[in-house]
Design a protein around this nucleic acid. Sequence first.
DNA 1: CCTCCTGTTACTACCTGGTTATAATTGAAC
DNA 2: GTTCAATTATAACCAGGTAGTAACAGGAGG
Lengths: 190, 190
Amino acid sequence: MVNQRRKRRDQLQYILEQDPFLTDDQLAALFGVSVATIRLDRMALGIPELRERTKEMAATVHSKLRSMHGMEVIGELVQLDLGQYGISILPVSDALVFERTRILRGHHLFAQGNSLAAALVNSPRALTARAEVRFERPVYLDQRVVCEAEVEEQQYNRYTIAVNSKVDGETVFSGQFVVADVAGKEESLK
Amino acid sequence: MVNQRRKRRDQLQYILEQDPFLTDDQLAALFGVSVATIRLDRMALGIPELRERTKEMAATVHSKLRSMHGMEVIGELVQLDLGQYGISILPVSDALVFERTRILRGHHLFAQGNSLAAALVNSPRALTARAEVRFERPVYLDQRVVCEAEVEEQQYNRYTIAVNSKVDGETVFSGQFVVADVAGKEESLK
DNA sequence: CCTCCTGTTACTACCTGGTTATAATTGAAC
DNA sequence: GTTCAATTATAACCAGGTAGTAACAGGAGG
């Protein structure tokens, strides 16, 4: 009796995670119980009503897209000495990994390094010109990638930047980025 | 008279694009008109009610996250001869560019090339080992990047793949990726 | 002057997908 | 057979709408 209820509630939770767009009516039909029971179950599980669920999703997505849009640096910038040195940290979420292997897709490591390198160059028009990178070890879901970048050389408007990313002190990615500061150069930008 | 209405409707459209979470009540107060007027305006503009708007957002986001999660290849795969050759196309949306300059962030070009290169290697465990890339020209908002990748060499489990991305026939990005097929190698994957 | 037309407003009935609370029913366990 | 938890039913209420109808205000044209 109680077990049936436990089971139903477990399933309810799972089902709503899979498809949050179900009304109490549909759920009641699905489980073959009354709507009242579904409501009690939802209450017990702390699951808000359909409209609240969708509103929440829409709102978080809204802000997420906003923040992604403004995200100049991939990962969180934790240190930045302009023109010299910087550190950013990227937590490996499940959106960034291969589904099967849970290994971080390589281009995210590149993106972290690239955006940090571009941030080091104190210009609104820093563009990467070349890069040479090595993926030393695979990085897995839920790890934290600490990326370190240092300006090695500057000639005219071209910066050579060494990048080294580590997980738990072990290098997983390294590379050299050449970033050009094209401020005032590209007429087509206007 | 009619102009006031036009103006109000233009503003209404704009405001709801900025913040889709406003009820007719709030909008009426905002414009200093009655709720009925807001409803007529919405009807005329083909804007659905608050709940429909949020539901729509939540749903598209839901599927978007799903598809992003499963997105093994950045860009749309238009041709793929496994182990040999492939083409993918990436439309440059505003989420991918620098806000000020509207130039595509370099790592998206890298990501397109990298994921296409990995797709060429017919293995669920293809990992990029090295890459050497050149960003030849800036790519702008609303352009379409056509990326071509070809396997140049294969030694044991290592593939050397040449990548060339073009916009309107002009090369914007080129590089060489070394991808390793680690199937059956990494015990830690289990 | 009156009339017509447009834009706006007010009012009513109804809908969905809930909430809260209270009471009645079921069923299994002791 | 009683008892107690789980379930169900019932009623009143709410937000944020839709749909439709009627009234009103104000300027343009006759």
